[in-house]
Each structure stands twice: as C-alpha cells, then as structure tokens.
C-alpha cells in the first residue's frame, strides 16, 4: 500500500518537476535569444530583417486563405447562430466579444500557426542542426540567436496577433452580414454595437493573449528544432513534441488568463 502511494506521489512529483524544468528551459532559451536580438546596435540588420519578413510572410500572409476559410465557416456556425438564438443585443454582443474575440479567434489562429508554422520551424531547424548547418553558421561567427531564433519567434508573434485580428473580424463580420441578409436587416446594427462593445480592457487582454500565444508557439518550435542532435528520427519526434507542447501551452495560458479575468 505504502509502495503504491509512493509510486503515485513519485510519478506525479517527477512529472511536475519535468514540466517545471521544461518551462524554465524554454523561458531561458527564448529570453537569451530575444536578449541577443535587442542588444544589437541595429535591431533590423539586413539578414535578421530578411528572416523576420520571410517568417511573417510564411506564417501570416500565406496562412490567410486558410484563416479566411475557417473564419467564414466559424462566422456562419457561431456568430450567425448566436445572433439568431439570443434576443438581447447587449448579451449577444458581450457573448460574441468574449467567445469569438477573446477565445475562438486567438485559439484557432494559434492552432493554425502551430500546425503550419510551428511544425515547419521545428523541421527546418532540426534539419539544419542535423546537417550541421547551425554549426557552420557559428563557425562563421554568425550568432544563431540573432540570425535564426529571434526573427522566428518575433515573426510568429506578429503573425499570431495579425491573423487573430483578421480571423475575429471576418468571423464577426460574416456572421452579422449573413444574419442581416437572411434573417432581418436590423441585425446590421450589430456592426456598430460590436465596435462600441469592445472595451479597452478587452482589447488589452486580446493583445496580451495573442502576444503570449505567439511567443510560446515560436519559442517551443525553435527550442525543439534545436534539440535534434544526430539522428534523422529525432526530427519527427521533436516536431510531434513541439506540436503537443504548443497546444498544451495555449490551453494553459488561456486558462490562466480566464482565471485572472474573473
């Protein structure tokens, strides 16, 4: 009996410590990468700037068709149905702001980023590490934190915020438009009501949440990419870990922010 209790507490303790170590490693890793970037005399030198812009194009702009499609579907499924279901305009606006803008928008943008960009970054960096390209960069005196890591983390962060804004606007706009066209033209009034219902503190939470999501997605992807060592089999293993850990991290951050908002 004592052994069983010991096993359970031992396992849970070890699991907790592993997770805590992982979090400390991750925060240290991303802090060092960003510190090296911000310590530069010129933040946007030619190569860091090129990496950052490429990352934003790949993560943000190239993802727009997928995000547009998902936003239109979500607009129809959620926004349109909520407007149709609830009578009170004030309640509907509050629910839409909290559910679509604060929850669904950042979460779907985050999941799209994890599956498209996070996995791509891990595979890219993993292969670079495997083929000794990272070592070659360091032997040329190139700081990989400034050249590879910080632009990717910042690129993903900016993209997360941008596509989340885009997703939220399309989802809400499409739902209201559909309600106005299919149910009653009075529902077009929701356009102005939604804008006036968007308080500063909600906007602040929206921005903070998206910045945190982006930072962690980028950092986790880079961290696992650089953990690839010598074997090609480590690339898919680390990619899978990066995806799972990123999704878990989104829910944890979301939960913490939800608790803080109460």
């Amino acid at each position: 009996m004592i052994n069983m209790v010991n096993n359970i507490t031992g396992w849970s303790g070890s699991f907790f410590l592993r997770r805590l170590n992982y979090l400390i490693d991750l925060v240290t890793f991303s802090s060092f990468a960003l510190r090296d970037w911000f310590k530069s005399v010129r933040l946007f030198d030619r190569y860091s700037y090129r990496s950052l812009v490429s990352q934003i194009i790949f993560s943000g702009i190239d993802a727009l068709p997928t995000i547009l499609f998902l936003a239109l579907i979500t607009g129809f499924v959620f926004t349109f149905r909520m407007i149709a279901l609830f009578d009170s305009i004030a309640d509907t606006v509050t629910i839409l702001n909290h559910v679509i803008a604060l929850e669904l928008g950042p979460m779907i943008a985050g999941i799209v980023l994890i599956s498209r960009t996070g996995s791509a970054i891990t595979v890219d960096l993993g292969n670079m590490k495997l083929h000794k390209e990272i070592e070659a960069l360091e032997l040329m005196g190139i700081d990989i934190n400034k050249f590879l890591i910080a632009p990717r983390i910042l690129g993903v962060t900016i993209s997360q915020l941008s596509i989340s804004v885009f997703f939220t606007m399309v989802t809400l706009g499409a739902g209201i438009l559909l309600s106005g066209l299919l149910l009653s033209p009075t529902y077009f009034k929701y356009f102005s009501d939604m804008v006036s219902g968007l308080h500063t503190h909600l906007l602040f939470i929206f921005v903070i949440k998206n910045l945190l999501f982006g930072l962690f997605i980028g950092a986790i992807a880079c961290y696992h990419g650089l953990r690839v060592d010598a074997s090609p089999t480590e690339v898919p293993q680390q990619t899978q870990k990066a995806i799972v850990n990123s999704i878990l991290m989104l829910f944890i951050i979301d939960g913490i922010i939800a608790v803080l908002m109460i």
Partner: peptide, 22 residues
Amino acid sequence: QAWLGLQNKISFIGQDTALLSA
C-alpha cells in the same frame, strides 16, 4: 560573443562543414 567575434577572422573547413541548404 567574443568567441563569435573572433570567428570572422578564422575560417574552418571540416569534412562535414555544410552549406546552408536554403
């Protein structure tokens, strides 16, 4: 940082030195 700074005055070509594939 000092080590990285020194590397632009020293070049190394090993058996497995790689070019950037991208």
